[in-house]
Simulated scan of single mutants.
Amino acid sequence: MTDPIKSLRTGPDAPPFLIAGPCVIEDRDTCLRIAEFLTRLTRKEGVPYIFKASYDKANRTSIGSFRGPGSDEGLRILEEIRREFGVPVISDIHSPEQAKSAAEVLDYVQIPALLCRQTDLIVAAAKTGKPVNIKKGQFLAPWDMENIVQKARSAGNGQVLLTERGTAFGYNNLVVDMRSMGIMKETGCPVIFDATHSVQLPGGQGNKSGGDRRQAPPLAKAAIAAGADGLFMETHFDPDNALCDGPNSVTFEMMEALLPQIVAIKAIVDGGGIA
């Protein structure tokens, strides 16, 4: 079937789609370099691609954490990436007041996990008419997302995506329940698995979060096998020196190795085998 969500195809015989980019807009050149790599790779593998980077990370661990360039400069960079590479762009908003101006540039509006129950924020995002990707809070069960989907639909927007990004598992740790993919798909929304935030260790380094990027590829493969329609993966050419979420971001080399495997797994799940 074809979704109303920007012509993304989901279900049997549809390729997995990818939302990826740096966690935050560090600068124009970094974003362009990452977008160029991911655009080239996804086109080679036949994977629909959406570029993601945050222009303002309002939910960082520390007051001293890098937040990004802000909305004006950040949206200009995202608009340039869309124009230069011909790919849709997505970023997150943190208040209802940001929705209208962000939607003038963004192809998709994203709701951060920690804000996924904020009714006014969801309704404002939905009222833009743009597809809305809502990340499941680390504190929620997958079936809790039905009520959140209804908030967006109440605003007349049926273009909703849901993203699984792990569940709080004690202090400074997350765990992934693969049953979440199928449960959230019962809402009728495409489901995405955020493989890199799911291996984050929130606040695990005192004044910043830690993570273990080595675990992202196996979890990504498991999620596609469990029925996820697409993946969300923070990607960086030098994650050890990234300004945000470096420990859980994957390298270019990891993404090059993973993407063909993801395509093959999706084909097997759909019953078509490997071509």
Rank of each mutant, 00 (worst) to 15 (best):
A103Y: 11
A126N: 13
L38D: 09
A35S: 13
N133A: 07
S95Q: 08
W143R: 04
S62Y: 08
A103R: 06
Q110E: 12
Y55D: 08
D144Y: 15
R83H: 06
G64T: 07
A58T: 11
F51D: 02
D56N: 14
G70Y: 05
I90H: 11
L106I: 03
T61F: 12
V24R: 00
D27Y: 02
D72T: 15
R43P: 09
C23I: 00
E104R: 14
D120Q: 14
R28P: 00
T30F: 06
I134G: 01
R60D: 11
R76T: 11
G70T: 03
N133T: 07
G129L: 08
C116D: 06
L75H: 12
I34Y: 04
F139T: 12
I90Q: 15
I90W: 09
N133S: 09
E84T: 01
D144I: 13
P112N: 10
G74H: 14
F51N: 04
A102K: 03
E80L: 01
L121F: 07
V109N: 09
L75F: 14
D92Y: 09
I122L: 15
R33G: 11
A53Y: 04
P96N: 11
R83G: 03
A53T: 02
E36T: 04
I19R: 08
I81E: 01
N59K: 04
L140V: 09
E79T: 01
W143L: 06
D29L: 07
K44V: 05
K135E: 10
V47G: 02
P96M: 11
I19Q: 02
S54G: 02
V123Q: 15
R33I: 10
R33L: 14
G64S: 07
S95E: 15
A102M: 04
N59F: 06
T30C: 01
E97W: 03
K130A: 13
G68D: 10
T119P: 09
F139S: 11
P112G: 08
R28T: 01
P69N: 08
P131T: 10
Y108A: 11
I19V: 10
R67F: 07
G46C: 02
L114Q: 08
D72F: 14
